[in-house]
């Protein structure tokens, strides 16, 4: 634990550590991974790991939750991304490689990755 030598040091520390707490109670962007039996069977676990890695590399805060089977088992792994105030986009048959693209395009820049979209609806 580094000693804080000034009032500024403490302010800086706060900025550094605020991330984890914000993440605990949900970041701005929500990512929902379908983790039903069907999802896991279709490789949702690897997709989840890829998303987490990508978020970590880019130091992005997002609320990642998982959901169960939504009935579109053949389109699994399904991933929903919701940006605040925007439509909820459901992507299907997402691979770990796609996952990184989704983070880069949709989460960071707000550009929907059209080729993977299976549904969109108002939140």
């Amino acid at each position: 634990m580094a000693t804080l030598k000034s009032l500024d040091d403490l302010r800086k520390l706060r900025e550094q550590v605020q991330g984890e707490i914000t993440e605990r109670f949900g970041g701005e962007v929500k990512i929902i991974v379908g983790m039903g039996t069907c999802g896991i069977a279709a490789g949702a676990r690897d997709v989840m790991t890829a998303i987490l890695q990508e978020l970590r590399t880019r130091n992005i805060q997002a609320a990642i939750t998982q959901t169960g089977c939504v009935g579109m088992c053949e389109r699994e792994p399904l991933i929903d991304i919701v940006r605040p105030g925007e439509e909820r986009i459901t992507y299907g048959r997402v691979t770990p490689v796609d996952a990184k693209r989704l983070v880069a395009e949709h989460v960071v820049h707000g550009r929907v990755v059209e080729d993977l979209v299976v549904a969109r609806f108002e939140e």
Binding site: M1, L7, L10, R11, L13, R14, V17, Q18, G19, E20, I21, T22, R24, F25
Partner: peptide, 21 residues
């Protein structure tokens, strides 16, 4: 119930010690 009381960073992250500053 929100933070880990044994980690000062979590308190700091919740604006802890900002009043002291």
């Amino acid at each position: 119930g929100y933070i880990d009381p044994e980690k000062i960073e979590e308190y700091v992250a919740r604006d802890g010690y900002a009043a002291l500053v």
